[in-house]
Amino acid sequence: MSAPLLELKGITRHFSAKRSLAEHILGAFGHASAQPKILRAVEGVDLEIRKGEVLGLVGESGCGKSTLARVATGILPPTAGSLAYAGRDVATLSRAQRLEYLLKVQMVFQDPYASLDPRMNVERIVGEALAVHKLAPRGDIAARVEKALTEVGLDPAYAKRYPHQFSGGQRQRIGIARALAVEPDLLVCDEPVSALDVSIQAQIVNLFLDIRAKRAMTYLFVSHDLGIVRHVSDRVAIMYLGRIVEIGPAQEVFSSPAHPYAAALIGAIPSLSRRKRSFEPIPGEMPSPLAPPSGCPFHPRCAHALPVCSERRPVLAPIAPGRQAACHLHAAEAAS
């Protein structure tokens, strides 16, 4: 249960932000900076996803969760840093090995409407990778599709139907079947239930747990919903402005968060009786990833900020067995 299946080392992903029209005009007169702006979506993330675990990833909107998920699955190349799958650096893999990595690390998407090709029927959607890569003999593909559909709780009789004939929850099941058809080891789920009705969410979460039990599946589970993350995760990582600020066993992090941001986020967890699905906003806004603050990225909003916080960025450091946080408060504790 401890060997890392996927290891992210110093993963950084920048986007070049488009300049606004006003900036273009100013630029033409030499008033704006000449170089294009850089959007720092993910900045130096180190993360281990261990075989068999469910690692939850939470953070406010725009903190880079989806970007990190896409880099982990190989959909987006990182700007810097490296990925190791089963101990091997993905950048050094041969063509065939790289395909194997891509297939073993599968994404489950957020939007059940945009994630299925509207012009393909379910059988083609789920069987496409098998057919194109010739992973199964032509005649066996229908049976493989049927098996995957059954596994996600869909009637294989629906195989000839098109996505628009299904509900959101059923479409999400089709997306999961598509991923399962290529026998992945790791499912990277990017807010897989946030677009669904509350009543359907629990069914899909339970499906993930069933798959985990049957296949010993590993998960990177991204969600806004702290209640769900707490329910499914073994470990949880808290992300802020492109960085991981705290990571540790889910029960410990949720019961005694160490990082002030994690504490604020978890303190804002809605009581289960009220069934509100997203956390209350923390006072202040997340700074723009175009111009991250100096020092600790959280210092403009932090209630515990020290003078050093605006000068030096705290690094992710062990604070207890299996737990890490990036905060000067804990460095000070450790020193005293």
């Binding site: 896409r70 190989g74 959909i75 012009r119 990778a129 194109v132 890569h133 598509r178």
Partner: peptide
């Protein structure tokens, strides 16, 4: 920009296939 294209990339499908089987008909 839609996610089904990202899914196709995730499956390592050849660019030519993505263009002809997904982008073109849609």
């Amino acid at each position: 920009r839609k996610e089904y294209i990202e899914a196709a990339v995730n499956f390592g499908l050849p660019t030519r296939h993505i263009m002809l089987a997904h982008l073109l008909p849609n």
